[in-house]
């Protein structure tokens, strides 16, 4: 009896172990961010909010944070403006060189980041854009496009074109069909693609180290420098804040889905209608 019960629980136990394996090394930064130690130390000798105060009052940390948000937001907007039309054309039209275009768009994803970084360094340096925010945005857009393009293509391939036909036969012209039916239906795919574009920039360190210079330095670059130079526990603070931000994002994005699921359940309990 108990044997059977144990066997039933094995998958659950395995899942918990895997989750711990994935999550514990990341979670270790949380206690370290509240530490009183002068360097990374686990377990912490004592707890305080000292490094949080240090982070929020140090312009050498706040400026890269602001830069990261600016660059990532601009990257996201520009990436979507470029990759949405590209994805529509790629999925819906047949044209000469379609496969070549796809390969070209995917290239930044295939080329090692260091190679890209070197190329950007040479290219943007000549244009005088190294160490500037526009330069960073340009580099990050080219890295983010393949990611959001992939997501958008997958979304578009799953899109039922009869929806557009239904809108048109209902009296909507191409423009209204696009904005009232196509776009809202693709919304979740668009949101995902935007998120990926944002994160592709926000998490990017290699290119940032090569080209962002002193003035356009981003958060990942600052963290790399900090861990190399002085192992400042403020990094643990930044990491904790980032983890918190991601968790918050996941919770918020899963909330509407849960609501609609419960409504569906209510319907099925009542059974199929007449």
């Amino acid at each position: 009896m108990s044997e059977v019960r144990l066997r039933d629980r094995i998958p659950t136990l395995a899942a918990i172990l895997v989750a711990l394996f994935l999550f514990l090394p990341i979670l270790i930064v949380v206690p370290m961010s509240f530490s009183t130690a002068v360097s990374f130390q686990f377990p912490p000798p004592g707890y305080s909010m000292g490094y949080y105060r240090a982070y929020f009052s140090d312009p050498t940390w706040l400026a890269p944070t602001a830069n990261s948000f600016i660059v990532a937001t601009a990257t996201m907007v520009l990436t979507m403006l470029l990759s949405v039309p590209a994805a529509f054309a790629y999925v819906r039209k047949r044209f000469v060189g379609r496969t070549a275009v796809n390969l070209l768009i995917m290239l930044p994803l295939i080329v090692p980041p260091v190679v890209s970084a070197l190329a950007f360094y040479g290219y943007l340096g000549r244009a005088g854009l190294t160490g500037t925010l526009p330069g960073m945005v340009m580099a990050h857009v080219s890295l983010a496009i393949p990611v959001s393009f992939l997501v958008l293509c997958a979304t578009l391939k799953g899109f039922d074109r009869n929806l557009e036909r239904a809108a048109m036969i209902s009296g909507a012209g191409p423009v209204r069909t696009f904005f009232l039916v196509t776009m809202p239906t693709l919304r979740s795919g668009m949101v995902t693609a935007s998120m990926f574009a944002f994160l592709a920039s926000f998490n990017e360190a290699v290119v940032a180290i090569f080209i962002s210079g002193r003035d356009a330095g981003t958060l990942p670059r600052k963290m790399f420098e900090s861990i190399q130079l002085d192992a400042d526990p403020v990094i643990a603070v930044v990491s904790t804040l980032l983890i918190g931000g991601v968790l918050l994002g996941v919770v918020v994005s899963s909330m509407p889905r849960r609501r609609s699921q419960s409504r569906t359940a209510a319907v099925s309990l009542r059974g199929p209608g007449p």
Partner: peptide
């Protein structure tokens, strides 16, 4: 063009607009 024809159509896979309620779907035309 199709949107000028004043023809109604029902598709095999229904093609209802997933982001609109039943009432809004029917109200669309």
């Amino acid at each position: 063009r199709p949107w000028k024809r004043n023809i109604g159509m029902v598709f095999q896979n229904y093609a209802l607009f997933p982001h609109l309620t039943v009432a809004d779907n029917v109200a669309f035309p």
